[in-house]
Design a protein around this nucleic acid. Structure first.
Lengths: 339, 339
DNA sequence: CTGAAAGCGCTTACAG
DNA sequence: CTGAAAGCGCTTACAG
């Protein structure tokens, strides 16, 4: 087991000071250092397989080149896709990412924030759960760069990158109306999260702009745990009674997964009996027998923007940016006319 | 923006040395410290919202309580599920996780290993790509605890947690044979990864034990990029000709996704014309019109085992453990008898 | 029961 | 062009 090699070891072997070795390893003061000495140092460092101890470096420089990312649940494809995009983007800035899943739980979110701050992350990119305002303010009070992703809070003056959820939902529902549907249902989460409420607002707007009736029974708000039993109950109720829905707007990929699974077991046919629009991209929407029309968030662009905003803050820009991206409606069979 | 509070600040305010504050914050030497002094220190630390700088602590103690995890691709549900399990398990040991995706690329894998080691991770849990042996040996030579997950190498004497891929595949194919299928195809990756070759070996074994014929045209090896065009070609060939397959064993969740998507567009019916068994759990297998029988890896148990093995190493156990878990075959409609 | 001091492995202002 | 020295914020062996 090889002993760790330090700057000191290189210095000794080269007959110079650690100062000089440090400069060379960091490619600093290049013009002031003797070329041959520099090369000698580099050769020795290479031969000894020197690797700098980032912990020591970070302590001295107050920069860890580490980024904290907190998402809802890394095992959820939406989070996982974002995670991957952020990982790749961070790498471009030579940053490493530490991840955490908050499970929509503000206490857990707070614990992760603390743990990441203790590790002296240079900044945070977070998708906070509802009621996380206090933790966000605490981050800002410490002067730690932070960018909100996917979510935002009216009371929090922080940079964020999100979707224009209102317009996205409105467009999705308008598309259903344009396809001739009259009784449009929605399944979404019962949540205080603003971006989810915006989706509901978009749904209502589209209905009223389309001069369509709205029945209370058509809108179902379920717990954020996405219990399959709740989804079944919601769908059963929406599809029963004197005015069953003929179109359905699904508010998230997890809601879509549970709904499509259940719909597979029913006699209702997509799109003949029921047209569907779902929020977010997901492979399950491709595999469903009637590929599902969906609202595509430009995750790549959003992730890039989040990282750039964060890097701006890390580099001490005071500029507050709040970016809302537009969604793209990807139209497929599930909203086609009856076949 | 609040100034950072240090041990020194607490010490000054309490009129004691930083030594004492450090002991109290770490709950050390409790019996030797004056109770009132200790409480006073705790009170002041609380009032000032003291948080310890883990970077400084790590430099001194040579422990970061950080774990490096390298998976194939965090955006792939298989990796994402593992990531989540490892995150939760690590948390139980007060560990934070830094993630990286190797994209089955040994160079990228090596870069991640180096970056994580530079950050002085206490250990690594990795799913290495093919041809990563050198990097694994380098890790071991540095004396850094490492556990392989999902994959392993004959030449590398390292602890690992993996599936018994041979038995898993064999059972899957035997189930197809038991369902009366005679011409069983497989789509898998062209790869030097041992665990994938084991799946192929299981396929062959089952066929020969079942006294079934094998035709070269039935086994398709595709690039690890899972190009949809390759999948189409493979399926077209398997389903064409004088002896088309009547059963199909899919070697990964990505292969399954592409295959099911294409099968949706064909006239072949599942399970009547074609029975399917797939490797790994995935929501797409639930959403497919004929829910797909699959080989379930006990990911939770595997993740737990990997973390425990790593912690053993971190705590200086020299014990080498190589654990192979058994898979569970989850039987569903796609291997049912013709309806 | 408490504290002065050394040191973890780097960086960097300063002096020469 | 080069180096001695201080210091980042902690921990901990040692002395009292």
């Amino acid at each position: 087991m090889a002993k760790k090699v330090l700057l000191k070891d290189i210095a000794r072997k080269a007959g110079v000071s650690t100062t000089l070795v440090s400069y060379v390893m960091n490619n600093q003061k290049e013009n002031r250092i003797n070329k041959e000495t520099a090369q000698k140092i580099r050769d020795i460092a290479g031969a000894l397989h020197y690797r700098t101890n980032q912990v020591a470096k970070s302590l001295k420089t107050s920069r860890t080149f580490t980024l904290g990312v907190i998402l809802a649940d890394i095992s959820n494809p939406f989070s996982a896709n974002l995670a991957r995009i952020l990982e790749d983007q961070a790498d471009k800035f030579n940053y490493t990412v530490i991840f955490g899943s908050s499970d929509e739980n503000p206490q857990k979110f707070g614990k992760l924030v603390d743990a990441f701050i203790d590790r002296q992350v240079d900044g945070l990119i977070v998708s906070p759960p509802a009621h996380a305002e206090d933790h966000l303010e605490a981050i800002q009070n410490l002067g730690i760069p932070v960018v909100l992703l996917d979510r935002y809070f009216l009371d929090i003056k922080a940079s964020y990158v999100a979707l224009d959820n209102y317009s996205a939902a409105r467009e999705g529902v308008k598309h259903l109306i344009g396809s001739g549907r009259k009784r449009i249902g929605m399944i979404t989460y019962q949540s205080d999260l603003l971006h989810l409420q915006e989706r509901e607002r978009g749904y209502y707007s589209a209905l009223s702009e389309g001069h369509l009736a709205f029945e209370k029974n058509w809108l179902k708000e379920i717990g954020i745990g996405t219990d399959p039993a709740e989804i079944k109950k919601a769908l059963d109720e929406q599809l029963a009674g004197p005015s069953p829905i003929d179109a359905l707007f699904l508010g998230s990929n997890k809601i879509a997964a549970a709904s499509l699974k259940y719909l597979n077991t029913l006699s209702v046919r997509i799109p003949k009996d029921l047209a569907i629009v779902s929020f977010d991209q997901s492979e399950i929407l491709d595999i469903f027998y009637s590929p599902v029309t969906y609202i595509r968030q430009p995750l790549q662009e959003m992730g890039e923007a989040a990282l750039h905003l964060l890097m701006d803050q890390v580099n001490h820009s005071e500029h507050l940016s709040q970016i809302q991206f537009k969604a793209e409606l990807v139209i497929r069979e599930s909203t086609g006319f009856p076949v």
